[in-house]
Design a protein around this nucleic acid. Structure first.
Lengths: 96, 96
DNA sequence: ATGATATTTAGCTAATCATCTAATTGATGT
DNA sequence: ACATCAATTAGATGATTAGCTAAATATCAT
């Protein structure tokens, strides 16, 4: 889970996830959406994959990235939930 | 909001927030809960304060740290919400 | 005013990070 | 086989980060 928060700490990576929300995309397609080099984007993809936030699938010359929503959900809501946020169900003492 | 995610990327800082969830605590009291030096903890506090996640109040010799839940909520659920997580209300196209 | 206590700032270091260019790998088409 | 295109790895660099010790600041008590 630390890896997930580390991954989320970079705005480029958060934006990649947001783009992936609308559906799978190739590495180059994703890279085109950012003003940095492809190798740099590749490094960001590695961090996201290391955190389990995305999965890859080979399609010819391309590599398709998929968003793993469940991993995002588990980390984000898991943490938020510890503060009584997001679920509607407080963690310790319900506000009577 | 980037500052918030940057702040959350460190496990020590996330734990500080979790401790603060149960109520305000002094700097030294918080520092005692971690195996690092006080100056190091002070630096972590600065990051959390810079992100707006905590506020301070002076009380005699001590400095009391308060958790700003609203800031955490806005960032965390704001981001999660963009993925249809946490609110029960999907972000773009509601499942009819 | 002196001393003790709580916290922060200053200054340093080692490690990590985001970025780049150049080179490599892998797949497709001619 | 060769050229081309997509993506990654290698290797380097400058910036940021988390950590430390030592020194400074602020408050309280004597």
């Amino acid at each position: 889970m630390n890896d997930v928060f580390k991954a989320l700490s970079d705005p480029t990576r958060r934006e990649v996830l947001r783009l992936l929300k609308s559906g799978p995309r190739s590495a180059g397609d994703l890279a085109d959406a950012f003003p940095v080099s492809r190798p740099t984007m590749s490094a960001h993809f590695n961090v996201l994959r290391g955190a389990g936030l995305v999965s890859t699938e080979k399609a010819g010359k391309s590599v398709i990235y998929h968003l793993n929503v469940s991993v995002l959900e588990e980390a984000l809501l898991g943490f938020a939930g510890a503060f009584g946020l997001g679920t509607g169900v407080p963690p310790v003492s319900p506000p009577e």
